[in-house]
């Protein structure tokens, strides 16, 4: 049966009967048949127990092999697609993802745009897929999201675009009570985040029309990158301190545990 499946499907292409497969992301069901709803490689996720049907899905990601170190100079080969995040990753039967939007439990990287007494406003830069957070040291499986260098290089805005670029990103709030798990009532937002910090957070709710809600109340969540008041990139020294390597001063943050 699988042999009749195309390697690559286009929207509207019939993939197989619902009697033999179950429909995964990138597909839809019509008249007891599974059809592709996006263009991409067809994946068959065979379950170990032969009783359940295999899941058919169309991947929105191409598993590429990015260069190992982030600072090395070989950008991945250019592509013409500009997909965003995560699809179903074969290794683990994760919760299927039908879109590239932030969902509950997604881990995201976001930039702090505003800090108030009761909450911090952030704009979401990257939705990390589950496989990234579970295998953080293996960049080869993290072909994810917004990861088309060519698209990033071309789109990253002129100054005019810059001011409005936050409006093109999904906005989220970190409420004071979601910053950390302990001593919640003693949280001072100014000592947790500063504008410009890059924060790793987990989505707890899709929120209202304009904001998602994030939490950083886990050891691996919190500020991952920050500049000191002098403008230098700081490194973490403890769960609540980061240090400026040039000036030597330290500043308070809700620091994510470095890997």
């Amino acid at each position: 049966m699988t042999s009749t499946l195309p390697a690559v499907a286009i929207p509207g292409q019939r993939l197989g009967p619902i009697a033999s497969f179950s429909a995964g992301p990138g597909t839809h069901v019509q008249n007891a048949n599974i059809y592709a709803s996006i263009a991409g490689p067809v994946l068959v996720d065979a379950h170990p127990s032969s009783k359940t049907k295999s899941t058919l899905s169309v991947s929105r990601t191409a598993l590429r092999n990015p260069s190992a170190a982030p600072s090395s100079s070989t950008p991945p080969p250019p592509t013409t697609t500009t997909t965003t995040t995560s699809g179903p990753q074969p290794p683990k039967p994760n919760k299927p993802r039908y879109n590239t939007l932030p969902a509950v439990d997604s881990v995201v990287l976001a930039r702090v745009t505003r800090v108030q007494k009761r909450q911090a406003t952030v704009s979401i830069l990257v939705v990390l897929d589950d496989s990234v957070s579970s295998h953080p040291l293996n960049p080869t499986v993290s072909a994810s999201d917004n990861d088309n260098i060519e698209a990033i290089l071309s789109s990253a805005a002129n100054p005019e675009n810059h001011s409005s670029s936050d409006e093109l990103r999904f906005q989220a709030l970190i409420r004071r009570e979601d910053v950390r798990a302990v001593e919640k009532d003693r949280v001072v937002m100014d000592e947790m985040f500063r504008v410009g910090d890059i924060v790793r957070g987990s989505v707890i709710s899709l929120g209202d029309q304009s904001f998602y809600y994030l939490t950083t109340a886990r050891n691996d969540l919190g500020v991952v990158m920050a500049r000191s008041e002098a403008g230098n990139m700081m490194f973490p020294v403890s769960w609540k301190d980061m240090r400026d390597p040039v000036g030597g001063g330290s500043e308070l943050r809700k620091v994510a545990r470095p890997f």
């Binding site: 990015p66 170190a69 600072s71 993290s142 990861d147 991952v224 990158m225 490194f235 390597p245």
Partner: peptide, 24 residues
């Protein structure tokens, strides 16, 4: 560079997006 230290776990695309200046 200090800036690369915490970002070693990031693939280039995310590095480019999060720390554009350091990336370039």
């Amino acid at each position: 560079m200090a800036s690369t230290a915490p970002s070693l776990t990031l693939p280039p695309s995310q590095f480019a997006r999060l720390q554009p200046h350091a990336y370039l």
